[in-house]
Every structure is written in C-alpha cells, then in structure tokens.
Design a protein around this nucleic acid. Structure first.
Length: 594
RNA sequence: GGUCUCGUAGCUCAGCUGGAUAGAGCAGCAGCCUUCUAAGCUGCGGGUCGCAGGUUCGAAUCCUGCCGGGAUCACCA
C-alpha cells in the first residue's frame, strides 16, 4: 500500500527533478533491512542514468523531494546508493485505527465471474489414504481457501478413481479369499479392508508368476499371463459391459471405501463442493475419442487400439483406448476436463497432482488442443513434490507407507503426552482436553506439511513433525492462546481498550508488529498467485515470533499509561485475529487456552 | 540417453520477478519464571548459497557448461 504510494511519488519526483519518464519497473521500493534506520528503501542505482549524478547526490535530491511531497515521509538517510525513508508514526497509527477491528482484514470480496476450479485428493478406491494423500489434501484445500480469500470464486472438486483394473484386483481377491466377510464384521475401516485385498491380490499374483517361471515361462510372459491377472482383466471387461454381478460387487466394495474415506476426510477437515466419479465420466472421454477419430486427429491401429500422435509436438504417440475397447487414465481425464468445463466455464482449471504426472498433464493439454478445445490453456497442473521419509521413499511393497489414520493417531498421542507433561490446566473436562489434543496434533501435522514450498520434495521426519517448539504449528497456536489469556484478563479487569490512537510515539516493537500486520493483505495475494500455503505459514510464524518479542519487551496489563496500555491490548487482539485468520487459510484451528 | 526438476549452517527449511554484512527452527552451549501462559524470550558458536564460467554498477537469485540427487519417457493411475 504505502510502497505503491512511494513508488508513484518516485515517478513524479523523477519527472519533476530530471524531466524524464521513469518506467515503473525501475521505481524500486523495498523494505529497509532491519540493521538500517528507516522503513522503506529506494535503490537509486537504476536512476543514475537518468539523474546523471553520483549515487549520494541523487539519493539526497530524491529524498528531499519525497519528504516534501508526503506528510507520511518523516525523514530519510542515505547509505551508499540506498535511500532509506522513515515513515511517520501517524501513518502506522492511521492504518491501525482503520483496520484492527475489521473482520475480514486482508481478504477480498469474492467476484462471481472468476470461476476457479480446483481438483484435489483424487483417490483410488482400492487402498487407504497415506502420507502422500495428506499432502495433496491439505494443499488442495488450503490453496482453495487462499484463493477464496484473494477474491476468486473457487469450486473444490474431487475426482474419485472408482473404476479400473486396480479396483478389479481388490474385488477379485475378495471374491476368492474374502469368504463373504464385511468390514463391519471385523470392525475395520472399509478403505483398509479393501486395501488388504489389494495386497492379497498382489501376493497371489507374485506367487503365480514365480510358479510360471519355475515351469519354464520367461519373466515377461509370466507377468502378462498369470491366471489371476487375466481374470482381473476379464472382470474389468465385464464391468465395462455392465455385467450385473460385477457391478453390484463393485458398488458394495466402493461404498466400504467411501465410508472409510469420509472418516479420514472429516478428521482432516477436508471438504468438496462437488465429487466426480470416473465411472460417470469415462464414457464422455470415450466419446471425445470417437470425435477425434472422426475429425482425423486421432488414429486407430490394426489391433483396434486408438492413439494420438504427438510426435510433431516433440512427444510420443499416446494410447487413448485399448484394443479391447476399455479406457485408460487419459481417456477419462479427457472426459472429466470436458465435463468440468461445461459445468463451470472456469477461467482456471487447477489440478493438484504429484509431480510424477507432469508428462500426463502435458499430454492431456495437447490432446485437448488437437480436439479443438481452446480452453485447454486454462488447465494448470499444480505439481507438488513427493514426501520422503528418513529411510527413503514410501514403498507399499516394503511396508514403509505411512498410513494417514495411523499418523493422526500418533500425533494425537504426542499432543496428549506433551500437554499432560506441561500440566497447565487441571480444570479441563475430558471433552475439552480431547478437543485441544485434536487441535494441537492436527495443527502440528498440517503446519509441518504446509510450511514447505509445494513444489519441493519434502522430508517427513516423524520425530520433528511432532515437535511442538520452534517453527511449528503449536508454537503459533500457543501465541494465540497466550494473547487470548491476556485479553481475558483485560476483560475481567473491565479495561476498555477500544480507543482511537493518534499522536502516540510508537515503541520499536509496537511499530514492527503493526508493520508486519499491514503486510497481511499482500501476503494473501502472493500466496494465491503462487498457489502456495507455505507463504501463509511462514508469515504466520514471523507474526507469532514478532509478537512474542513484543510480549516480552512491553507490559500491557501492568502498563499505567492508559493510551499505551490500550494500544498494546488492541495490537494484541489484532495479532490474535490475524493469526487465526491465517491459520484458517491453512485449515488449522487455534485454541483459546493451551 | 531425451525432457523436467532440485542442490543454501550438522539436520529441516526461508530468502530466488537481481540490491546493503545470506536468515529462521532443530540439535549444542550459556542466561531469564515472587511480573500479563517458560509450548516462551535473550545471547554464543556454526556458511566458498554444489563447482566453473558469463551478463551486470551489483548474482544465492538470470544465462551456459559440468558434478550430484530426484521425477518422467507404460495397453498403471
């Protein structure tokens, strides 16, 4: 805000002093580094060509001009080619008076016309959610909320991969070895139950391969022709033909998985505006493929399979339909993209999908373009990095997958132990304690994951993730609770701190905190543009850290000067509200006491 | 091999649309609770920003090459 003002003044200044138009990209205004005096700094080096004077002279001339043209610029100093401007306390107090009671400080009202559809989660229905899915879900949900706060009309959608060979594998294994058991019979979550049969399939498949190799087949042949795999393929074909028995089993098993997923989603605090199912969209995908054949942009091979030739775009040929007529991943993604476009006519179609699928989305866009869909350009693949463990990658085969539910349980236990050790409150009911442990454990987990730049591969160290000190969710939650405690005491003492704050000489820590608070609106915009919850997380941490310094440096309830006391309490409330607001964008709750 | 990515303190990460002496946390050491929540605060030590060139008044940031890690190039999703 003030940066823009200074920037505009600078353009005027150059015009008036040197009779020259300053391109706005040269009007550089940045925050002054803390070890120098001042609030904002103009770098004058780029202006020397225009001023034709040395850096010090130029900086002094400009400084003089700026100070005279704005009541808020109270002084300046020049160090080398850096012009450091001091902003008057009255500016910061004005900002503070205008904003500290605003509910939606930093947020922009949503404009209807800018539909932004964001797909995330996109689970397969053959196994439970793991740590990788957690990153996806947290990112997708948070990016959606951040963009809402930035004024976008956001629609959160999920695309459930409810059909395909992988589900058939679980179904087949259950038919063969399930003995009619159901998840409720043995008290296990439905998604875990179905996942176990997926594992079972794999075990049997491996056995059959081994047997085939022993009886003389080569490896590749054995992998292709293992009877249980052929059976699963047969089942997929039956499914696509609409075979009643297969479809019924499919529906029943999928429902078990959905019931399980719902529990995990609810616990994570994840929701959607609309859920798409691949089983509803793959036919549309197939019809798009037909359309492409008619238009002659796709071709059929001798065996009947359909392909798209992208060699003129530097890519390869890509299969869109198998020879037996069944569809692949790409087929249904064409369909869902079309459906989503028809449903929302969005300006942006964001897909939160791991970076291992960069190539897939490249192809998806290009095929859609070939089909004449110009809106393919709206597709944006938010490709996030993998989550690694200290011992390497998660591999289901090696049993190193971190299960989502187990992880949340473990975090809960740690939150409980830590809270009990600190033993701050003995007046919490069991319900209140349970609620607090949930808030803290999920806060720790979500913050740990979201504070890292989405694009980067991240290391998930279980020991560090449950740490509650330093740059962690609970530290920031603690800061909020601490502020709330002070404010409660102020209320008990019937202190009214809702005053107008003018003509007050700001202390360093008061000013730096107000300055930081004034950044929040820009932070939201920046985070939205970059689809990066990490920007919000890092800001919340800065804010909490700054507040704790303020808290230690300055008394509040014990301050006798009424204006000072009131201002500090008001700053505290503003900070608590901003921490809460920022954490809401990350899907993290903050406690009143902890 | 082609394409894409990443490489910053012992570890995990900020900073990257070029700006001043590169920042946090964890871990280590030393202080601060008869004062508003010590899940906190303060201080100390810790760096050739992978390496080498280039562009620039100025490079962790941009370009090229190399080294090292990862992803991908499936009739899996």
């Amino acid at each position: 805000m003030i940066e823009n003002t200074i920037s505009k003044l600078l353009v005027d200044c150059v015009k008036s002093l040197y009779d020259s138009e300053l391109p706005s990209n040269l009007a550089q205004v940045q925050k002054t580094r803390p070890d120098f005096e001042g609030d904002y700094t103009v770098v004058v080096f780029p202006l020397l060509r225009i001023s034709k004077k040395n850096p010090e002279q130029t900086a002094n001339e400009i400084g003089e001009f700026l100070q005279n043209s704005s009541e808020y610029i109270s002084g300046f100093n020049v160090v080398k080619g850096f012009l450091n401007l001091s902003i008057s306390d009255s500016y910061w107090l004005n900002f503070f008076n205008d904003n500290w009671l605003k509910d939606k400080f930093g947020k922009v009202d949503i404009k209807d016309e800018q539909a932004l559809v964001i797909e995330y989660s996109s689970p397969n229905t053959n196994k439970p959610l793991h740590l990788g899915h957690i990153r996806n879900n947290l990112l997708g949900w948070s990016v959606a909320e951040i963009n809402k706060a930035a004024g976008k009309n956001v629609k959160k959608v999920n695309l459930v991969n409810d059909r395909g060979i992988h589900i058939c594998k679980s179904m087949l294994a259950w038919q063969k070895y399930g003995e009619e058991r159901k998840p409720n019979d043995i008290g296990i979550k439905g998604d875990k139950f179905v996942g176990d049969y997926y594992v079972k399939f794999d075990q049997e498949y491996k056995k059959e391969i081994a047997n085939l190799i022993e009886s003389g087949s080569d490896k590749e042949d054995a992998e292709k022709n293992a009877p249980i795999l052929l059976e699963a393929k047969q089942m997929l074909k039956k499914w696509e033909e609409g075979d009643t028995e297969v479809r019924e089993l499919w529906q029943e098993m999928n429902q078990w998985v959905y019931d399980g997923f719902d529990i995990s989603y609810k616990r994570m605090g994840i929701d959607f505006d609309k859920v798409y199912y691949e089983s509803d969209t793959y036919l549309l995908g197939k019809s798009l493929v037909e359309e492409g054949l008619e238009k002659g942009v796709l071709f059929k091979k001798e065996d009947g399979s359909v392909w798209c030739d992208l060699s003129d775009e530097g890519l390869d040929q890509k299969l869109l339909l198998r020879a037996d007529g069944t569809s692949v991943y790409m087929t249904q993604d064409l369909g869902t993209a079309q459906l989503r476009y028809d449903d929302y006519n969005p300006t942006d179609l964001v897909y939160v999908v791991g970076n291992e699928q960069i190539y897939h989305f490249d192809v998806l866009k290009k095929v859609l373009k070939k089909l004449g869909r110009s809106w393919a350009d709206a597709i944006h693949h938010l490709s996030y990095g993998m989550v690694e463990l200290p011992h390497g990658k998660m591999k289901s085969r090696e049993g190193t997958v971190v299960d989502a539910d187990d992880l949340m349980d473990a975090m809960y236990d740690t939150a409980k132990t830590t809270s009990e050790e600190l033993a701050k409150f003995d007046d919490f009911t069991e319900e209140e304690s349970d609620k607090l442990y949930n808030i803290l454990s999920l806060g720790a987990l979500k913050y740990f994951i979201l504070k890292v730049d989405p694009k980067k591969t991240m290391m998930f160290n279980p020991e560090e993730s449950i740490d509650f000190t330093g740059n962690t969710g609970p530290f920031i939650q603690y800061t909020h609770a601490r502020i709330k405690s002070v404010l409660r005491k102020a209320k008990e003492a019937k202190i009214n701190y809702n005053l107008n704050f003018d003509n007050h000489q700001l202390e360093d820590k008061e000013k730096s905190l107000i300055k930081l608070l004034s950044d929040y609106p820009i932070i939201i915009q920046h985070a939205a543009e970059n689809y990066s919850p990490a920007v919000i997380a890092n800001y919340a941490y800065e804010l909490a850290k700054e507040y704790n310094q303020f808290y230690h440096a300055l008394p509040m309830l014990k301050e006798e000067n009424e204006t000072k006391r009131s201002l500090r309490l008001a700053i505290s409330e503003f900070t608590a509200n901003t921490i809460k607001s920022a954490f809401e964008l990350l899907g993290i709750d903050v406690p009143e006491r902890m």
